[in-house]
Simulated assay, not measured.
Amino acid sequence: MAIIEPFNLEPSPLITINGRNEASANFNLQANASTDAGNIQGIVQRPDGTPIPFATVKLFTSNNVPFEHNNSNATGRFIFPQVPVGSYLITASEPTFLTPLRVSVTVSKNRNTDVTITMQTDPDGNKNALFGIVKNSTNNDPLRDATVQLFRVVGTGSESVGVVTTNLQGQYLFANLIDGSYFITASKSGFLSNQSTPVSISGREFAPADIGIAVDPDANTGTIHGFVTDSSNNSPINNAIVALYSVSNGTEQIIDITKTNAAGLYLFGDIISGTYRVKATVQIEG
Rank of each mutant, 00 (worst) to 15 (best):
M1G: 14
E5G: 07
N8Y: 07
N8K: 08
L9H: 05
E10P: 00
P11F: 02
P13S: 13
N18T: 10
N21T: 09
E22Q: 09
E22S: 06
A23I: 07
S24T: 08
A25Y: 05
F27D: 01
N28C: 00
Q30G: 10
D36P: 01
D36Y: 10
N39V: 13
N39D: 13
V44N: 05
P47G: 11
P47R: 13
T50S: 15
P53Q: 14
F54T: 10
A55G: 12
V57T: 09
L59R: 04
L59D: 04
T61S: 13
N63G: 11
N63L: 13
N64D: 14
V65P: 02
V65W: 09
E68G: 07
E68T: 07
N73Q: 10
T75I: 07
V83F: 03
P84K: 08
V85L: 06
L89C: 08
I90V: 03
A92G: 07
P100I: 14
P100M: 12
V115Y: 05
V115G: 04
T116H: 12
Q120C: 00
T121Y: 02
D124W: 00
N126Y: 04
K127R: 07
G132E: 06
G132F: 10
N139V: 07
N139F: 07
L143C: 01
L143H: 01
L143A: 00
R144Y: 02
R144K: 04
A146N: 09
Q149Y: 01
L150Q: 12
F151K: 13
G155A: 10
S158G: 00
L168A: 08
Q169H: 02
Y172E: 05
L177Q: 08
D179L: 09
F183K: 02
T185G: 03
T185S: 15
K188A: 09
S189F: 08
L192M: 11
S196V: 03
T197Q: 05
S200G: 02
S200W: 00
E205S: 03
A207H: 01
A209S: 06
A219C: 02
A219T: 08
T221R: 15
G226A: 11
D230K: 14
N238F: 06
N239D: 15
V242N: 06
V242H: 06
S246Q: 10
S246K: 10
S246W: 01
G250N: 14
T251Y: 12
T251W: 01
T251I: 13
I257V: 12
I257N: 08
K259R: 09
T260V: 10
A263G: 15
A263M: 15
L265V: 11
L265D: 11
L265T: 13
L267K: 07
G269C: 12
D270K: 15
D270N: 15
G274Y: 08
V278K: 05
K279M: 03
E285H: 08
